[in-house]
Design a protein around this nucleic acid. Sequence first.
DNA 1: GTCTATATCTCGATAGAC
DNA 2: GTCTATCGAGATATAGAC
Lengths: 215, 215
Amino acid sequence: MADLDQYTDTEERIFRAALEVFSKKGKDGARMQEIADRADINKAMLHYYFRSKAKLYDEVLGFVMQRALSSFAAAMQETDTFEAMLRTFIAGYIDFVGEHQAVMRLMVNELLAGGDALRRKLAPRLTSEPAAMPQQFIRRMQAAIDRGEIRAADPFQTLITVVSSCIFFFIAFPMVRLINPEATAQREAFIEARKAHVFDLVYHGLAVKGKRKGR
Amino acid sequence: MADLDQYTDTEERIFRAALEVFSKKGKDGARMQEIADRADINKAMLHYYFRSKAKLYDEVLGFVMQRALSSFAAAMQETDTFEAMLRTFIAGYIDFVGEHQAVMRLMVNELLAGGDALRRKLAPRLTSEPAAMPQQFIRRMQAAIDRGEIRAADPFQTLITVVSSCIFFFIAFPMVRLINPEATAQREAFIEARKAHVFDLVYHGLAVKGKRKGR
DNA sequence: GTCTATATCTCGATAGAC
DNA sequence: GTCTATCGAGATATAGAC
């Protein structure tokens, strides 16, 4: 995690521990003692570095949202075709969520709680800017429709479907591995297969009907 | 909620209040006082009817899991074609989640916490029985592939994608309505559109290449 | 900066009158 | 069954020595 450089070593240890514990136990379930233990530090030091549990949580949440925004941006790299964009987007998204599950968990927790905090901080960066990920995805998909690369489907609904397919797998993992234990044993392979599947299904779902036959 | 008949009026009021509060605040974030207020009774009465917070939570969770299983079964009604099955499954699933969001939230909370409770209680009904929803979906999709109705795609991955597309929308709703306020104003219409979109995208994604598939 | 000891507070749970 | 008052555990937060 590169942009933790603003912190000293101790602060960073605390921060990582806090992210881990908050994401697993939730804001309320998390215990300052557990964070302290995991950071290998005295409990009193938590309050020395970050005044209170609430402030520590806010700090962690802010970091998490930064992370999420970066991943959005990274996943939307400029690519030639819509097909390439979609493939990159899905792979990038799944990679990010897979590697930063604590970040994802924290955000889902916030969403379940109403998402007020997320809305306050992310609103400006998700709506006003035309460069924001959702608008960009929608614009590029619409362009692909207009030039006949794909068939007409609602871009916003499609975005929801793609994001859901990338994220929810990790939330539901306890169920997934219950039904198919192989998903645990061959985790990496399963994730790669998931990337391929989501792209394949969505892209075929958007394919122009009977294109070869020039309907 | 029909099968709450086992409870007296007061018990049922408590139960509904508890489901609501637990689903919004999580097991740890929930406050017995808030449940009492919402049930319009004294806090001491909670302990009179349900001994402890833990027992109350367990009771609620058990009910929720019953509900989820029923919805699985209902969504897998016998239908002639895979196409009809898929359409019914998606519509049924979205309807259930939309109408029982508290149930869904509680289950997602459990999943984020590791899903141990869910696994203990749902495992037998999700794996051993061949009539269980996942196996049934996979079997029917495989049959459709075998007889050439749809192209070869991984049934398990497809199931994950479909379920994700139906559920995650409701979790991410705070974000959805931030990007597209219309989703709030025209909620019912948006949900109907979502059903149609998910079916449309997935079924076309599974369509045999080059084969004209009307609808 | 670090630690021990302790203050303070919140919340689940109970006692006991009615 | 219902309510008021209160206990006690457990968690956050601070004081103060080093």
